[in-house]
Amino acid sequence: MLRGYLRLLLFAFGLLVGVQVPGFVDDYAKRVAAHRAESEASLLGFRETAARFFDGDLNALVAHYRASSDAVMQSDAESVGHLVARAELLEDEWLAMQGAWYAQVWHLASAADRALLAETFEAYSYQVLLAPQAIAWGLGSGLLLAWLVELLGLAVGWLLGSGRRREQRLNARRWS
């Protein structure tokens, strides 16, 4: 009986963890979009200058600033270069978060920007979404966790010999 309750408890824990996945993915995507919009706003004036003098190429603008003999222009080159690099990173992250749900989850697990991921973790508030994908993630996680712990318990029991003793008892009953 206790074993059944432990299974239910594991399933419920897995369910609650699983329903967090879509909410976290959504929060990360919103954070990326907000940072991207902020980045684009900060580059607006530089984009206009690049469009006027360098056919819209921000990297050419940065190179021009770096090549200048003016120390102020060279200093601005570093600032603008940082803004351009940040905008490119945010654009790549935004594009990655426009894909299918499984591609988004894979991106977060394997290639997401660590600073944005940490920022999202810090600001994330646990939530229980009743969206279909959250329910699917919850049920899948609950079943997977319960199944894995059950297999682990059976494997440990088998390694410790309880499976063989039970088999011996069953064989003894058959022969008696």
Rank of each mutant, 00 (worst) to 15 (best):
M1N: 07
M1L: 10
R3A: 07
Y5S: 04
R7L: 15
F11M: 05
F11G: 00
A12T: 09
A12C: 10
F13P: 03
F13T: 10
G14L: 06
V17Y: 01
Q20P: 06
Q20Y: 05
V21D: 04
P22L: 07
V25T: 14
D27K: 15
D27T: 07
Y28Q: 04
Y28F: 15
K30V: 07
A33Y: 00
A34Y: 03
H35S: 08
R36T: 02
E38G: 07
E40C: 05
E40I: 13
E40W: 05
A41D: 11
S42Q: 13
S42M: 10
L44A: 15
T49K: 05
T49D: 04
T49C: 07
A50P: 01
A51W: 08
R52D: 04
F53M: 10
F53W: 12
F53I: 03
D57H: 00
L58A: 01
L61V: 01
A63F: 08
H64Y: 03
H64W: 00
Y65L: 07
R66W: 02
R66F: 00
A67W: 00
S69G: 12
A71Y: 13
S75M: 11
D76T: 11
S79D: 05
H82D: 13
L83V: 02
L83A: 05
A85P: 06
A85F: 12
A85W: 15
A87V: 12
E88V: 14
L89V: 11
L90M: 02
E91H: 14
D92P: 01
E93Q: 15
L95I: 11
M97L: 11
A100C: 05
A100D: 15
W101Q: 11
Y102A: 13
A103K: 09
A103V: 08
H107R: 13
L108W: 04
A111I: 02
A112D: 04
D113C: 09
D113F: 04
R114N: 05
R114E: 13
L116V: 09
E122T: 12
S125A: 09
S125K: 09
S125P: 00
Y126L: 15
Q127N: 10
L129C: 05
L129I: 03
P132A: 10
I135W: 02
G138N: 08
L139H: 01
A146E: 09
A146Q: 06
A146L: 07
W147M: 09
E150N: 06
L151Y: 03
L151F: 05
L151W: 11
L152R: 04
L154S: 07
A155W: 12
A155M: 08
A155E: 08
V156W: 11
G157C: 11
W158V: 03
W158S: 12
L159T: 03
L160W: 14
G161L: 15
G163C: 06
R165H: 13
Q168T: 09
R169D: 10
R173Q: 13
